[in-house]
């Protein structure tokens, strides 16, 4: 079995009276894809942003390989530069070209010389099929293209894992495919990914592990076969039934 790359232990997060994460523990192995599913407002996105401390958790510990992220002595910026993040609304830097969006982290954070950074950026943009859009600005691209740029931006940093926060939820139905295809390709190339998504077709085809969350806790966790066909939890069955009906098992 591949070694564990991300370990989350007993994570808690509340906003005032509202408890969003109520003791979450799970781990992700090198090269595997974990898909987190669940109804809206169950803390899936909060969980993701807690992993790189963009949202600081109240309690609990997180390890990336042997580094404890939640240790106050850890250089969090260094850790963040090795964890990619892809957002629901892309969050591309609107004032920069596609190339500069991908290159900025390399030159500013990793201090890589500009020509080398340019080469890496073009290579990653090529990977997501956007090498012809180097000089376009985000607002000139379709949602699907923007999301692919943001995946290239994450990839350029050479991350140990990438977190995807509902990467296709803000896209027109006909643009979802191009983003999912890139993600499938990534998973097959051995990238470690944690994906919050409602795309059951993607989960079924790619996930090594599916986590079903509700009310801040993990209700059930297992491989796609177990979750889709042999779930013992009535809530999991009900949710998967509904969501599959709604979104369908989109072909790969």
């Amino acid at each position: 079995m591949p070694e564990v790359i991300l370990k989350v232990e007993n994570l808690y997060k509340s906003y005032g009276e509202l408890t969003v994460l109520n003791g979450i523990s799970f781990q992700v192995r090198q090269g595997e894809t974990t898909v987190i599913i669940g109804t809206s407002g169950t803390g899936k996105s909060t969980l993701l942003t807690c992993i790189n401390l963009i949202t600081p958790p109240d309690k609990g510990r997180i390890w990336l390989e042997e580094i404890e992220i939640t240790d106050p002595k850890t250089d969090i910026n260094l850790v963040r530069s090795s964890i990619g993040m892809v957002f629901q609304h892309f969050n591309l830097f609107t004032h920069l070209t596609v190339l500069d969006n991908v290159r900025l982290g390399l030159t500013v954070v990793k201090k890589i010389p500009k020509d080398r950074a340019t080469a890496i950026s073009i290579e990653k943009l090529n990977l997501v099929g956007l090498a012809d859009k180097l000089n376009s600005y985000p607002a000139q691209l379709s949602g699907g293209q923007q999301q692919r740029v943001s995946i290239a931006r994450a990839l350029a940093m050479d991350p140990k894992l990438i977190l995807f926060d509902e990467p296709t939820s803000a896209l027109d139905p006909e643009l979802i495919g191009e983003v999912l295809n890139v993600m499938v390709k990534l998973a097959e190339s051995g990238m470690t990914m944690v994906v919050v998504s409602h795309e059951m077709g993607f989960a079924r085809a790619v996930a090594n592990d599916i986590i079903f969350m509700e009310n801040g806790i993990i209700v059930e966790e297992g491989d796609p076969e177990t979750m889709f066909h042999h779930s013992r939890n009535p809530r999991t069955q009900e949710f998967l039934h509904k969501i599959t009906e709604l979104y369908g098992g989109r072909p790969k």
Binding site: T49, N52, I54, N77, L78, V79, R80, S81, S82, I83, G84, M85, F87, H89, N91, L92, F93, T94, L104, G105, V108, V109, S150, R153, M157
Partner: peptide, 21 residues
């Protein structure tokens, strides 16, 4: 906030995020 989040996620510190983004 989204722009700041994206910058911080890349590993930029607050000053770098302010200056470049």
């Amino acid at each position: 906030e989204d722009q700041m989040k994206a910058a911080r996620s890349l590993g930029m510190n607050t000053l770098q995020s302010i200056r470049f983004v």
